[in-house]
Nucleic acid binder design. Structure first.
Lengths: 391, 391
DNA sequence: CTTGAAAGCTCAACAAGCTTGAGTTAATCC
DNA sequence: GGATTAACTCAAGCTTGTTGAGCTTTCAAG
């Protein structure tokens, strides 16, 4: 989210090694148990280089041996797999009224999760809450300090003074200080900061339905509506870190032009239900109402179909992703209803003859998506080389 | 445009050098005459490394010394600048009925340009036309072979069998062979292939209004409407090379939902004029009609404003670019009219307090944009390190 | 005018990382 | 059982970037 400066950094021995380490680790992750020779082939390195890096990763405990695999003739390859206990990531989600925390192991599995209410939404209050949360979420897990790879932090965007400020979603307390430096010092860990939609998108890549994908888009129900776009395993940030503000695009709806978020978002459904005399504060409420076939909710779903279909078509045509994922703070029942209702355009670059994978999927991470995504940011960084751009 | 495979390549000494060479050359280009110590500072390399690379670039003739600059105390820095004669790029645009060619020098200035009609739109005919064009465009320039850095080729997208095939825009003759390999062998040069909108976007970065920008979007009038998105100096391709198909997104227009291209494109304006009994084949015709204040053209411009404004808002919010550029096969008069008519949303991430640069600009490259862009692809690649992704 | 600080630059030694090629081990094929 | 194939290791070698000392040139202070 920090505005990416124009600095592209030069390569040297150390940075090359870091790049290659991530490359090899990412291969071990994505290709399951895999031998060194195969890694070398797919990464354009010599087997010797891969051997050295594997030795490094073994010494650091990030991977483990996984027996030999005999395939055809020749010496059977020693296989390697991620060591789940080899590294952990802390994820923290900051909302105006509460903070959520979670810890993921190297394989993306949830180790623990906590929720604290936020006493004071100023900088000191947030810092204390985050520190407390870290202790709470790590206590009893027996995770040694050096095994913590870093912390991901999710705050609602957009960042900086934009035209959509005042939508009530952003915490305006970091104006003078760079929050990443602040949190990094407060936690004593390397820190990554993103908005909720981007974090959710990465969560799907680490432990959700986007596991095999490298280029996809995630439409995220937060309080508003967000979009996280992943290109070649990396988040698309935009020039000022605010890419993906899909809630504010104009879409056709019932013969009018509407901000997407007005028709499709948590706030939108709550408004519609309230007008019908029903309050629905949480995801469970919505789930219940859906199973009761509450007429106001069904009417809302009806009116949401056209604009959401338009949004999906827009995303498909502008980003040409492998898939579009729908998820976030909505019950699965509602998401599934929307997925079934969306009419995919056949005048789309995604409508392709030999296509075998689904164009549209439901996110798998459930309601903790953004918090898990915060931690997933750290894991994703550990698996994805990124030599070119540096703050 | 070639579908980017999932292969991310490892770093070694040679690739690091190539990366750093591009980095240094790009700095020399963007920061004008610049000394070695300063390059070292901004690129995170030692001055010694930069010195070695500069010596290389000098030996290759890509840069030249440019005197010393005395600024404050200390030894004045020896300055370096691009040598325009140090390298050239060939650009070729293939249309269903004609091929265009151009040569750019290292500074992005046009050295020569040609246009040939295309006798046969099959593979052999195209190959012959391209070979002839190459000879024609290089003859008399005195450019020695080794100075040709490569060729960029522009073909209309989308590529592959997508749902918007049959829009009549794509050449369907490369189905079995990879066109980049084909052209590379036919020309004996490294080849880059892109669609027109992407090439046009890069043209603006090399010699147009996007010179200082690293993240921006270009809305391109071809026969349809295209979008080229540049992120950190690199084109956004999408998973299958078809990102940016903005012509096929639904936008609100006069109370209906419309494909953008139906309201805003060359074909659209020609249809509108024909319905009024006027033919407008080329850019000059449109320019004339505009200065005559032709009522059908003005009416078309009127109806184009709302959907185009919507498209710009969508692009701003999804990509968060430094600027949106409008250009392509339209006369400047019409583009300027559209630019003035577009209503920028103030509920956009681009609407920012301390903003000093324009949100919207007209492309500078005129009607040869895509052809120049084809060559610009090659130059851009020479200036932009790209260690991570390889075909 | 002299002296010292500051900044750009070069030289030579060094270190890190990847590659290469020969050699080893273990499986399959004939 | 020998040939072949494939994964892997070892040691030497190569390319590249870094480091630190030393040189040069300019400016500024005394």
């Amino acid at each position: 989210m920090i505005a990416i400066s124009d600095i592209t950094v030069g390569a040297n021995a150390g940075r090359s090694r870091s790049h290659n380490r991530k490359l090899v680790l990412g291969r071990v992750r994505s290709a399951g148990p895999i031998g060194r020779a195969e890694i070398a082939r797919v990464s354009g390195l010599s087997t010797q280089a891969v051997s050295n890096i594997i030795a490094d990763l073994l010494a650091d405990g990030l991977i483990v041996e996984q027996g030999r695999r005999t395939a055809g003739r020749g010496l059977p390859a020693v296989q390697y797999a991620l060591n789940p206990q080899g590294g952990f990531a802390l994820g923290i989600e900051i909302r105006p009224d509460a903070v959520f925390g979670a810890v993921l192991d190297l394989c993306g599995r949830t180790v623990s999760a906590e929720r604290h209410t936020l006493a004071a939404a100023d900088r000191r209050g947030v810092t204390r809450a985050v520190r407390d949360l870290r202790r709470a979420v790590l206590d009893g897990t027996g995770i040694p300090g050096p095994r913590l790879l870093g912390a991901g932090i999710v705050m609602p965007g957009p960042f900086g003074a934009t035209g959509i400020r005042g939508s009530g979603s952003d915490l305006a307390i970091w104006e003078d200080a760079a929050p990443d430096i602040w949190f990094s010092e407060a936690l004593g860990l390397p820190v990554l900061i993103e908005n909720d939609a981007n974090a959710a998108a990465i969560a799907e890549r680490i432990s959700g339905v986007a596991r095999g994908l490298s280029t996809y888009a995630f439409i995220y129900f937060g309080s508003g509506l967000g979009l996280g776009v992943v290109q070649d395993g990396r988040l698309m940030a935009g020039a000022f870190g605010n890419a993906g503000e899909i809630g504010h695009i104009p879409v056709p709806a019932a013969g009018r032009s509407l901000n997407l978020e007005r028709a499709v978002s948590r706030l939108s459904v709550q408004r519609a239900l309230r007008a019908a005399g029903t309050e629905a504060g949480g995801v469970d409420d919505l789930d219940r109402l859906y199973h009761q076939r509450h007429p106001a909710l069904l009417a809302w779903l009806d009116q949401a179909t056209e604009p959401l279909s338009a949004a999906v078509t827009i995303v498909e045509n502008l980003f040409d992703p492998q898939a579009v994922i729908l998820g976030g703070a909505m019950p699965d029942s509602v998401l599934d209803h929307l997925l079934a209702a969306i009419r995919l355009s056949d005048r789309s670059v995604a409508h392709r003859a030999g296509r075998d994978s689904p164009r549209l999927m439901r996110g798998a991470s459930g309601r903790m998506t953004a918090t898990l995504g915060a931690a997933a940011l750290v894991l994703n960084q550990a698996f994805t080389p990124q030599i070119t751009v540096q703050p």
